[in-house]
Simulated scan of single mutants.
Amino acid sequence: MNLDYIVREPENITKNTTILFMLHGYGSNEQDLFSFRETLPKDWLIVSFRAPRNTQFEGFSWYDIDFNNPENFVDIPQATQSLNSIMESILKIVTHYEITEGKTNLCGFSQGGILCYALALKYPEMFNYVACLSSYPEEKLLTGIVKDKKKLEKLRFFVSHGTDDAVIPLEWGRKAADLLYDLGCYFTFREYMSGHGVNQKNYIDLMDFFSK
């Protein structure tokens, strides 16, 4: 399934252009993270996807969430379907722009971040910098992930979470540090005095991560 998306193209696109794919959170849309483009490197190609499912108030989601059931918080079949659609769309876009040598980065918030963990750890050869904001690694989406340290070595993760997150508990977010440590991945894990969102300090650190 082809996903809708918006794009910011740099002046010149070559086979070495860096491309960043953005995945928004539940009930939001493709404009949300796209606002980050103002402070991201000017020579990057930035693509922000719209999730395929409709939610209330003209928002979109990658899959349904059951807030009353932490054990089955994520609708796994829907999430898997979204992962496949994202991967298909990424490959199409990379091919369309003929970017054969460039780095491919990911940035996801909440639901989008949960999918970023799965994408990066299932297809580590595809990605480089991965930012997972206010999210957590969902075990049920991580079956069959790559565990070969050699294949994971070019991944760099930036993980951030608000200490007062009322949507995805900080404890869940912290699972990422254990997982990435066990896999031998390079990662930065940061906690901020904020709720379910990205505060200014978090934003500055995120931009710092991407500009390295």
Results as ranks from 00 to 15, higher is better:
Met1Leu: 12
Arg8Gln: 15
Arg8Gly: 07
Glu11His: 10
Ile13His: 08
Leu20Trp: 05
Glu30Arg: 11
Glu30Lys: 14
Phe36Ile: 06
Glu38Phe: 12
Thr39Trp: 11
Lys42Met: 09
Ile46Ser: 03
Phe49Met: 13
Arg53Tyr: 14
Asn54Phe: 10
Thr55Phe: 03
Phe57Ala: 11
Gly59Trp: 00
Tyr63Glu: 00
Val74Lys: 00
Val74Gly: 00
Ile76His: 07
Ser82His: 00
Glu88Phe: 07
Ile90Lys: 07
Leu91Cys: 08
Ile99Pro: 00
Ile99Gln: 03
Thr100Ile: 08
Glu101Tyr: 10
Gly102Asp: 12
Asn105Ser: 15
Cys107Trp: 03
Gly113Asp: 01
Ile114Phe: 02
Leu115Glu: 00
Leu119Ile: 04
Lys122Ala: 07
Tyr123Met: 10
Tyr123Trp: 11
Met126Glu: 12
Ala131Arg: 00
Ala131Phe: 01
Cys132Trp: 01
Leu133Arg: 02
Glu138Leu: 07
Glu139Arg: 14
Ile145Ser: 03
Val146Arg: 06
Asp148Trp: 07
Lys149Phe: 06
Lys149His: 10
Lys149Ile: 11
Glu153Asn: 15
Lys154Thr: 14
Phe157His: 03
Val159Arg: 02
Val159Lys: 03
Ser160Asn: 10
Thr163Pro: 04
Asp164Asn: 15
Asp164Ser: 15
Asp164Cys: 10
Asp165Phe: 04
Glu171Gly: 08
Gly173Ile: 01
Gly173Tyr: 01
Arg174Pro: 04
Ala176Asp: 05
Ala177Asp: 12
Asp178Cys: 06
Asp178Pro: 04
Leu179His: 07
Tyr181Arg: 13
Gly184Asn: 02
Tyr186Ser: 13
Phe187Glu: 02
Arg190Tyr: 11
Met193Tyr: 11
Gly197Gln: 08
Gln200Ile: 10
Gln200Ala: 12
Gln200Gly: 12
Lys201Met: 11
Lys201Ile: 13
Tyr203Ile: 09
Tyr203Phe: 15
Tyr203Cys: 09
Met207Ala: 09
Phe209Met: 09
